[in-house]
Design a binder for these strands. Sequence first.
DNA 1: TCGCAGTCATTTGAAGAAAA
DNA 2: TTTTCTTCAAATGACTGCGA
Length: 269
Amino acid sequence: MQKMIHQVEKYVREILGIPVTLLPWENSAGLPQYLRERYRFSSMMVLGTDFILMVDTAGEEQSPAVTGKHAEMVQSRGRLGVIYVRNAVTSYNRKRLIERKVPFIVPGNQMYIPTLGIDLREHFKALRERKLVFSPSTHALLLYVLLRKEADTLTPAETAHRLGYSPMSMTRAFDELERADIGEHTAVGKERHLHFPEKGRHLWEMVLPYLTTPVRKRLYVSEAGKINGNLAGQSALARYTMLSEPKNKVFAFSAEDWKVGPKSGEIKE
DNA sequence: TCGCAGTCATTTGAAGAAAA
DNA sequence: TTTTCTTCAAATGACTGCGA
């Protein structure tokens, strides 16, 4: 929770360019128990105006109507404007919070405080620098390098042939690695050469910040015993190591295999 | 001639908006 | 609140031109 308070502080400071200090709000003891259980309260001064921050600690989102009522109750007790804070708000609830003129802050994302004329939406997200994340073809190239024993020099054309990608995709993968300063990139005539001086764990740790999970979705299904697929996660570890089998078996499917396989059969999600 | 790179088209999925 | 529709971005391949 303290982390969220810091995020709000940082976000407001970044956007408005002024120092902001958040302090615990002393008067929260007089609020009903259910409000004190759901929210954490802080006081904040922005542009000369004091506010109470009502930080939502619950996992599930509640309706904007309920949020509005809670904010009104806190406002009537504290005699100060209330700003609702939550780490994420769905688009439809955001719209309704604005309709109800409920001030809110989603740290790093949105700030709506109509009394101060502040209405900063998600477009600020786009202005931030984008983190370099490797494309799937680059992931494939790296896994190929990590799994094979010999350490020879690679070219885009040869790697494309081996991995089943087009030469253009492999050229892009080489570009991404070069941008991330991973591997030794040289050119022999017009041919690009890529060599990895680092091996195994060292290489893995170097590339880790640029990798993303290949998992699109996690599903729990009935009749898992009827599934025929590639074991994944702890189930795969149990197959190849001394680890014991997990209670629920884990399988991995590509989107296509899932559609023509278990999803089309009698397995229920 | 061949390998690479630039550009454009296509496909796919995610996110947001609108409708029910 | 849920479902459906729309838009946008990412990933990839095909085509083409450049230059060693």
